[in-house]
C-alpha cells in the first residue's frame, strides 16, 4: 500500500480518546468507596446467614443498613459497568459487535442495579 501522507499527518486529527480521564477517576473512586462497603457486604451476608424474610426486613429497616446497602449497590454496579466496559473494548474488535455487546452490558447492569436499589428501598420502608 502506498501512503501519500506523512507520519505527522497520519497521527494528527485522529481526535481525543473521546473521554479523557473521567473513566479512570470514576473507576478508582468507586473502588475506594467499595473497600469498606465490600467488607460491610461480607459481614451482612454472614449476619443474614439462614435468615428468614422477617429477619431480613428487620435488618434493612435499620436506617444505616439501608443507607449502606444502597451505597454498596450503587457503587458496585457503577464500578462493574466501568470494568466490563474496558474488557469489552479490549477483546471485541469489530465496531458493530462491540457497540452491541456494550449496550447489552449497560442495559443489564442498569437493570439489575435498579432491581437491587428498589429491593433495598422496599425492604427498608
Amino acid at each position: 500500500m502506498k501512503i501519500m501522507r506523512s507520519a505527522l499527518g497520519r497521527a494528527r486529527g485522529m481526535g481525543a480518546a473521546k473521554a479523557g480521564v473521567h473513566h479512570w477517576w470514576a473507576q478508582r473512586l468507586t473502588a475506594l468507596a467499595l473497600l469498606p462497603l465490600a467488607l460491610y457486604a461480607v459481614l451482612s451476608v454472614l449476619l443474614l446467614k439462614g435468615a428468614t424474610q422477617a429477619e431480613m426486613l428487620r435488618y434493612m429497616a435499620e436506617p444505616w443498613n439501608g443507607v449502606l446497602f444502597l451505597a454498596l449497590v450503587i457503587a458496585l454496579f457503577y464500578h462493574l459497568q466501568l470494568g466490563l466496559q474496558v474488557v469489552i473494548e479490549d477483546y471485541i474488535r469489530s465496531e458493530g459487535k462491540r457497540l452491541t455487546v456494550m449496550l447489552a452490558m449497560r442495559a443489564t447492569a442498569g437493570f439489575f442495579g435498579l432491581l437491587a436499589v428498589i429491593s433495598v428501598l422496599k425492604l427498608s420502608f
Binding site: F69, F77, L80, A109, L115, S119, V120, L123
Partner: peptide, 15 residues
C-alpha cells in the same frame, strides 16, 4: 459482576 447480579436477585427475592 455475575455475583452482583445474584446479589440483586437475592435482595429482590427478599423484597
Amino acid at each position: 459482576s455475575a455475583g452482583a447480579i445474584l446479589l440483586s436477585l437475592w435482595l429482590a427475592a427478599a423484597a
